[in-house]
Design a protein around this nucleic acid. Structure first.
Length: 1022
RNA sequence: GGGCGAUUAGCUCAGUUGGUUAGAGCGCCGCUCUGAUAAGGCGGAGGUCCGUGGUUCGAAUCCACGAUCGCCCA
């Protein structure tokens, strides 16, 4: 029975991960970890809710990996954590998903379907995808308290938002805005400013130049440019830039001179001279236009960058237009309804959409000779972020929260937050400085019911809790199954001013209210008594076992020590959370933030299902494996977009192979030699260690220290880099150098290598939980009875003293070896051929390691000190020392040294340009010719020279190495096991090698070597 | 128009206190090891570190201005 399970030549990540998941489940590892850490110091992480509306996409895995990495790290360090996952459950996302499923495509169709039924479908959808996301997250390795998720559509969550809104109202911040807003005609609702961002697409629209004939100026017209023909029927004014120059063409058209510098004008006028002129509107005969006087108004913001310098103004169909209407007292014509269709007083346009009227408008203008030019333009135009319908402007009443008073408080709160990467803090500030009032209302169905009950008496009743609703209700309580439409709409309450019955407004709330309240709703803010299962109320009933904790619990866990979400969340969740928290408590709800950019495909394009380049989470998890994905996410500098794909994944798989092979090496020989590991070795190795062993121990300590530092600053790229470098050193220095020691029962070597691999697994476990656990099981948990059953149940391996001197020595050795290889390679002599002598200068700290250097470079002797006889030497200033000392004199000294313009005194000091430099103030480089017998290489003060002369003895040894090489190749070709013994027959021509018979036999595991009548060496299994 | 980033090898990107000859991976060429083996190692070619100016003994790094790209706001 081997000590370790043999490793296959390459890891099967998928199988290995499923096995680890199964073991965690079987052994209750996560529960045990939580129990162990319970009562320890707290690490408060607040999970931003993931929308339970679709399976996970690759980009979700990025964020969820980061969340899991740091929760695992903190858990290994003994921190008590909550692990509560959150689902975002209501609002437009879910509605649109359900609409698609049901084939509904307008608000009318939803209403015909029935709001109660529609709400049930929404809840089913949330339940369904909540489950899918949970399974996918588990597969990714996420450890969360999966049975106690919070759902933002619970009555509890809703009530907490009501309390917030009540506070907002008490503060006097709540108001109804009558404004021009971006409107989605399909969804039938306005969008808030944070919903507009990132939702621009390249769209082609008509580009029209249209005449507005001036009254009292026969034959003269203003020419305006528009890309929205549908707004022309609502035109009431034309704006000019008062200080710009306008010109009248011979054709009678007025345009800005700056726009047409080449044109000839029969008359010129400043914009202000045109102000006040009246003109004929484009569609004056429409009933809606009755009695409207169209006139020219001044507007400083008229652009001379495009168009004609004269702007068509329709206050009912544009934001700036609407603002101007207030300044200039213009009539406001609102042409379209909630579905984006024209109202009845727009003649032939009635009932048509904004797109459908484009053509008739053009035809009509043309017929009347009003059209100067008709083309098209492709520009960036906002579309609905959910359904991609192009947005329009319309006048609407929305509920808004004023930002005036909170803005500075939020800025102050943000100043307390530690952002990673740091510059995101400034972006948050920028957003806060510029944020407009928060539009919280949506004219939809399955969302947060706004608890606003305006009364005819002028009183706005804002209900702050379910209890208050019950108390004030005058009807509808019996059927109130949950706080959603349609049920909530049936409840009427008594106005607390006049006592009349009042109804709720029909609007629902912005989904970011739902997400923003969770630092309060999930932690039991101002809740007197702990309520078991108290978060699974209303629509969340039966979905979760989450409790509603009491206020003491909130005190313990608020604010979050750390949150992590993608960059967009600056204007979304980071914003809404902070807004609500500052309102309620005056402080930031999180202390530290890790933010990351966007996930693109591996060529750098955005992923889109319709482009065929999208990779969803399930597919990626299946074909890459979770560890590989996690590595990719962790390696990525979070301020850069991540190029995600199979190409990069395969590269990572290959890189992980070095670790795998190192472990496989250990396992192979440990089994052959029946090595038995001791768990206590991980706390400190007390074996008789050789210098190289002590080096690996120091190197391992260094890894632990670096990893810890990087985890502490939430910088996964640093962790990955440190680990990668460690594995390279482990494999390409320690194992490479020590290989032979494992062919025999060298206890110190086995223990040292085992120690290093086990400790490294612990350090990387948060990033690669599966691989680390798999290795821990095989290397530690299974063979050591006293070891923790999981790498995550072992405590974090604290870094001890790092032997910096030893690390420096070996670094010097490796540099010498590197140079030695370079020197050898310039000579053209194979590494297999032994050489007589190597001389090293400038690497004093490598002096204790002459034997290693000799072995690596296959030379008989390594001497230190005198390479001068082989090379010329060059002296360079040590800038760190001499810079401060010499100041402006330095360049002179430097160039003198470069041109060998210096002398050396008896003490070895350098006399140059009037200065005396001691030896430790300069760096000495060797360079130059040394004759054909010596090959050399130098770098940064270190020089090596190797004697390339061969003598008969060296040549003979070279032949022995050749033979060994050849025989071992034959062994491999013959498919022999590592431990198989062989009999070798050599041709008589090899007789001279007789002297090295034992050496050869040892290297090829030969029980017999004889010389026979053969032409080629032959070999058979013994 | 304002804000925040980015610009480093053919490609993808590291490079947090300013320090000597700027790194990695991939790709390319050559060599090499062969008991990690459809791997590994070494070497080479390949860089005006976007540009200009400034601070400094010294700038990829700090400052100013400009260019290009990206993101956010207006």
């Amino acid at each position: 029975m081997p000590v370790f399970r043999p490793l296959p030549s390459v890891p099967d990540h998928d199988a290995l991960e499923l096995e680890v998941l199964e073991r965690w489940k079987r052994e209750g590892t996560f529960d045990e970890l939580r129990a162990r850490n319970s009562g320890g110091p707290t690490f408060s992480f607040m999970d931003g809710p993931i929308t339970a509306n679709n399976p996970m996409a690759a980009h979700h895995c990025w964020g969820r990996t980061l969340k899991d990495v740091f929760q695992r790290y903190k858990a290994m360090r003994g921190f008590d954590q909550r692990y509560q996952n959150g689902f975002d459950c209501q609002g437009l996302w879910v509605e649109v998903g359900v609409e698609r499923d049901l084939g509904l495509n307008s608000k009318k169709e939803i209403e015909e379907y029935g709001l109660a039924e529609f709400a049930e479908r929404c809840k089913e959808r949330v339940a369904q995808y909540g489950e899918v996301i949970t399974e996918q997250s588990k597969r990714l390795g996420m450890w969360m308290d999966w049975d106690n998720d919070y759902y933002t559509f619970s009555d509890t969550n809703i009530e907490y938002i009501w309390r917030f809104l009540e506070r907002v109202h008490d503060n006097g911040w709540l108001y109804v805005g009558h404004r021009s807003v971006e409107w989605c005609p399909r969804c039938g609702t306005s969008l808030s400013q944070h919903e507009l961002i990132n939702s621009y697409e390249e769209l082609t629209h008509p580009s029209l130049y249209v005449r507005f004939p001036l009254r009292d100026r026969e034959g003269e017209s203003l020419v305006v440019w528009t890309t929205t023909p549908w707004t022309l029927p609502a035109n009431v004014a034309a704006a000019v830039k008062p200080d710009a120059e306008y010109g009248l063409r011979a054709s009678g058209d007025w345009v800005a001179v700056a726009r047409y510098p080449e044109d000839e004008f029969v008359r010129r006028a400043r914009g202000e001279e045109l102000v006040g002129l009246e003109y004929e509107g484009p569609f004056d005969e429409l009933p809606a236009q009755a009695g409207i006087v169209h006139r020219v108004i001044p507007w400083d913001d008229v652009t001379l960058e495009d168009g004609t310098g004269i702007v068509h103004i329709a206050p009912g169909a544009g934001a700036e237009d609407f603002e101007l209407s207030k300044v200039h007292d213009l009539p406001v014509l609102a042409p379209i309804d909630e579905a984006g269709r024209f109202y009845g007083d727009y003649g032939e346009f009635e009932g048509r959409s904004t797109e459908e009227v484009e053509k008739p408008v053009v035809v009509e203008l043309e017929r009347r000779g009003r059209l100067v030019e008709h083309g098209s333009i492709t520009h960036r135009y906002p579309v609905c972020w959910r359904c991609a319908t192009p947005l329009v402007f319309r006048i609407a009443d929305d509920w808004l929260i004023s930002c005036d008073e909170i803005r500075d408080q939020m800025l102050a709160a943000n100043a307390t937050v530690e952002w990673t990467p740091a510059f995101y803090s400034k972006r948050m500030d920028d957003w806060l400085r510029n944020m407009g009032d928060w539009n919280i209302s949506r004219r939809r169905y399955f969302g947060l019911p706004l608890p606003f009950y305006p009364c005819a008496c002028g009183r706005l009743n804002v209900v702050g809790s379910l209890d208050e609703l019950r108390e004030r209700a005058t009807a509808g309580l019996v059927q109130l199954q949950e706080l959603h439409r349609p049920w909530i709409d049936e409840v009427t309450i008594r106005c607390d001013s006049c006592g009349e019955d009042v109804r709720r407004v029909p609007e629902v709330g912005d989904a970011w209210l739902d997400a923003g309240i969770v630092p309060f709703s999930t932690l039991g803010w101002e809740n007197d008594e702990w309520v078991e299962g108290g978060h699974a109320t209303g629509a969340a009933r039966g979905l979760s076992g989450a409790d509603l904790p009491d206020h003491a619990y909130w005190e313990k866990w608020f604010p979050a020590d750390w949150v992590s979400e993608m960059r967009e969340q600056i204007r979304l969740w980071f914003y809404s959370q902070s807004f609500m928290s500052v309102t309620l408590t005056g402080r930031s709800p999180y202390n530290a933030v890790l933010t990351y950019e966007k996930l693109l495909d591996e060529t750098g394009r955005e992923m889109h299902r319709s482009w065929g380049n999208s990779i969803d989470a399930a597919e990626a998890l299946d074909s890459m494996g979770a560890d590989v994905m996690r590595w990719m996410f962790c390696e990525q500098v979070p301020s850069q977009n991540l190029k995600f794909g199979y190409g990069p994944a395969n590269e990572i798989k290959r890189r992980l192979l070095t670790l795998w092979n190192s472990v496989a090496f250990l396992v192979t020989y440990a089994n052959i030699e029946s090595f038995r590991p001791r768990y206590a070795d991980l706390a400190g190795l007390d074996a008789e260690l050789k210098p190289l062993d002590r080096w690996l121990v120091a190197r391992t300590q260094q890894l632990l220290r670096e990893a810890e530092q990087e985890y502490e600053r939430y910088w996964t790229p640093g962790v990955v880099r440190a680990f990668d470098a460690f594995v390279d050193d482990l494999s390409n220095w320690y194992i490479r150098r020590s290989r032979r020691r494992f062919y025999s029962d060298d206890d110190a070597a086995f223990r040292t290598l085992w120690h290093a691999v086990a400790q490294a697994s612990r350090a990387i476990a948060p990033v690669l939980p599966f691989l680390a656990e798999h290795l821990w099981q095989n290397l530690v948990a299974d063979p050591c009875d006293d070891a923790p059953r999981s790498v995550f149940l072992a405590p974090w391996p604290e870094a001890g003293e790092v032997d910096e001197q030893l690390l420096a020595e070996v670094a010097a050795v490796r540099r010498v070896v590197e140079l030695g290889r370079q020197a050898r390679s310039t000579s053209g002599i194979k590494l297999r051929q032994p050489l007589r002598r190597l001389v090293v200068e400038g690497a004093p700290s490598a002096e204790g390691h002459a034997e290693e250097i000799a072995e690596e470079l296959r030379v008989k002797e390594v001497t230190f000190g005198d390479a001068k006889s082989f090379v010329r030497f060059r002296v360079k200033p040590d800038l760190r020392k001499l810079g401060p000392k010499l100041g402006p004199e330095l360049p002179k000294v430097r160039s003198a040294l470069e041109t060998f313009d210096f002398e050396q005194d008896d003490e070895g000091n350098f006399l140059v340009a009037g200065h005396t430099l001691s030896q430790d103030e300069v760096l000495i480089d060797k360079t130059g010719p040394a004759g054909a017998e010596w090959a050399h290489a130098q770098d940064d003060g270190v020089t090596v020279a190797v004697d390339t002369r061969l003598d008969p003895e060296l040549e003979l040894e070279g032949r022995v190495y050749d033979l060994i090489h050849r025989l071992n190749s034959m062994r491999k070709d013959a498919g022999l096991e590592l431990t198989d013994r062989v009999r070798v027959t050599l041709p008589k021509s090899c007789a001279e090698l007789e002297r090295h018979r034992e050496w050869i036999a040892r290297e090829v595991l030969a029980v017999e070597i004889r010389f026979g009548d053969v032409h080629q060496p032959q070999l058979e299994q013994a």
